[in-house]
Lab assay of single mutants.
Amino acid sequence: MIINNLKLIREKKKISQSELAALLESSRQTINGIEKNKYNPSLQLALKIAYYLNTPLEDIFQWQ
């Protein structure tokens, strides 16, 4: 199971779900699903999230 700190990191950087979704060329619903652990992002999307949040991938997503 993958757990994530996306919501915590996103809020700390003062970025809304909609703003992050626009940067990622994704939907706000996708970001919401990832944050609620209802959806696991593809590797490509996970890497883009890490890039746009300027945060190491392993700080956002962790195996448990």
Rank of each mutant, 00 (worst) to 15 (best):
K14V: 05
K14L: 09
P41V: 10
I60F: 09
L24Y: 00
A46Y: 04
Q64W: 07
E11Q: 11
I9D: 01
S26C: 15
E35C: 05
S16C: 06
E11Y: 06
K13D: 03
Q17S: 05
E58L: 09
L23T: 06
S27E: 08
K7R: 12
M1Y: 07
I34Q: 02
K14D: 09
N37L: 07
I2N: 07
L8C: 15
S27A: 05
S26E: 15
L53M: 05
L47Q: 12
Q64M: 07
Q44W: 10
S26V: 15
E35Q: 02
S42L: 03
S27V: 04
Q17H: 03
S18Y: 11
F61G: 00
S16L: 06
E25I: 07
N32C: 12
T30H: 11
N40M: 15
D59W: 07
L45V: 06
I2K: 11
D59M: 10
N37S: 10
N54P: 04
M1A: 07
E11T: 10
K14P: 01
A21L: 04
Q62D: 04
T55W: 04
L43E: 06
L45R: 00
Q44I: 10
I15P: 01
L43F: 12
K13Y: 09
R28H: 11
S26H: 09
P41M: 04
F61M: 01
A50M: 03
K13T: 06
S16Q: 04
Q29P: 06
S18H: 10
Y52G: 03
L24Q: 00
S42V: 04
N32R: 14
K12I: 10
N40D: 07
L43Y: 14
K14H: 12
K12N: 12
L43P: 10
L57V: 11
D59V: 08
M1G: 04
L57I: 11
S42I: 04
L53T: 01
E25W: 05
K48H: 05
K14C: 12
D59P: 04
D59N: 09
Y51R: 09
I3A: 08
I2A: 09
E25Y: 10
T55E: 10
E58D: 14
L43C: 15
K38W: 14
N5Q: 05
L20P: 00
W63Q: 04
I49M: 06
D59F: 10
Q29A: 14
L45A: 03
L47N: 10
A22Y: 12
L6A: 01
Y39D: 05
M1Q: 05
L20Q: 00
E11I: 11
K14S: 09
G33I: 08
K38T: 13
P41Y: 01
S27K: 10
N5S: 05
Q17W: 06
N4D: 05
L45M: 13
K7H: 07
N4V: 08
N40S: 14
E25K: 15
K48A: 09
Y51I: 08
L8N: 13
L20R: 01
N40A: 15
E58T: 09
S16Y: 03
K12L: 13
G33T: 08
I34S: 02
R10K: 00
L57R: 01
E35N: 01
K13M: 14
Q17M: 09
I9K: 01
Y51G: 06
R10W: 07
L57D: 00
Q62N: 05
E25Q: 15
L6H: 01
L43I: 12
K38D: 11
Q29Y: 10
M1H: 05
L8A: 14
L43K: 11
Q64E: 14
N54A: 12
N54Q: 14
N4E: 02
K48E: 07
A22T: 12
E25H: 15
L53N: 00
Q44Y: 10
I31P: 01
P41I: 08
Q44F: 10
L20E: 02
Y52M: 10
K38A: 12
N5M: 07
K14N: 14
I49Y: 00
Y39A: 09
I3E: 07
S26M: 15
L47M: 13
A46D: 01
N37E: 06
Y51M: 11
A22M: 12
S27F: 04
D59C: 14
K14G: 15
Y39P: 01
I15N: 01
I15T: 02
P56A: 08
I9M: 07
W63C: 08
A50P: 00
Q62S: 08
L24M: 09
K12E: 13
I15Y: 08
I60N: 02
Y39Q: 10
G33Q: 15
S42Y: 04
I2C: 14
I34Y: 01
D59T: 08
T30W: 09
N5D: 04
N54L: 06
T55S: 08
M1T: 07
L53F: 07
K12S: 14
A46M: 09
L45G: 00
D59K: 10
A46Q: 06
L53S: 01
L20Y: 02
R28A: 14
K36L: 14
I31N: 02
L6M: 10
L45D: 03
T30P: 02
I49N: 00
L20N: 04
I49G: 00
K13Q: 13
I3L: 13
I2F: 11
K14F: 08
Q29E: 15
R28G: 08
S26G: 06
I49P: 00
I2M: 10
S27G: 06
R28N: 09
E11C: 13
A21N: 01
Q44L: 09
N4K: 00
G33Y: 14
T30Y: 15
K38G: 07
Q44K: 13
N5G: 02
S26P: 01
N4G: 03
I60K: 04
M1V: 09
S16N: 05
I60R: 00
L45E: 07
I60P: 02
Y51K: 10
I9L: 09
L45H: 01
L24F: 02
N40E: 14
I2S: 08
M1K: 05
P41R: 00
S16V: 03
L23V: 11
L53Q: 00
Q44T: 13
E35P: 02
L20A: 00
E25N: 15
A22S: 12
L8Y: 12
A50H: 00
L43W: 11
S42E: 06
L23H: 11
L45C: 12
L23W: 13
S16K: 08
Q62F: 06
Q17E: 04
K14M: 10
Y52D: 00
G33R: 15
L43D: 03
K13N: 12
A21K: 02
I60L: 12
F61K: 01
E35A: 03
Y39V: 14
S42W: 03
N37P: 02
I34G: 02
A46G: 08
K36T: 15
N37T: 04
L45N: 01
T55P: 04
K36M: 15
A21M: 03
E58G: 12
F61I: 04
T30G: 02
Q29I: 09
Y52K: 05
A50D: 03
I2P: 05
I2T: 11
R10Q: 01
D59S: 09
L53G: 02
I9T: 04
N5H: 07
P41K: 02
L24G: 01
R28V: 15
L57F: 05
A21R: 03
I49E: 00
E35T: 02
K38P: 02
L23I: 10
K36V: 09
M1S: 04
T55D: 01
T55C: 08
R10I: 05
G33S: 15
A46I: 05
L8R: 13
L47P: 00
S26Y: 08
S16H: 02
I34V: 05
M1P: 11
L57Q: 02
R10P: 02
L6N: 02
Y39L: 15
Q29K: 13
L45I: 08
E25C: 15
I31S: 00
I31D: 00
N40F: 13
I9W: 07
E35W: 02
L23R: 09
S42D: 09
E19C: 13
N40Q: 14
T30A: 08
N32Y: 08
A21P: 00
K36F: 06
I31W: 02
L23A: 15
N4Y: 09
L23C: 11
L6Y: 00
I49A: 05
Y39M: 13
S27D: 15
R10H: 02
W63D: 02
K48W: 05
N37M: 07
Y39C: 15
Q44C: 15
L23K: 11
G33A: 15
K13R: 11
L53D: 01
R28M: 13
P56I: 04
N5T: 03
L24V: 15
L43M: 14
L24T: 15
L23S: 10
Q29R: 13
I9N: 01
E25V: 09
Q64N: 13
A22I: 13
L24A: 12
T30F: 14
S18V: 12
S16P: 05
S16A: 06
N4H: 03
N40V: 15
L47Y: 10
L24P: 01
Y39T: 11
A22N: 12
L23Y: 13
I49Q: 00
S27P: 12
E58P: 10
I34T: 01
Q64Y: 10
N5L: 06
I31T: 01
Q64V: 10
L47D: 05
T30M: 14
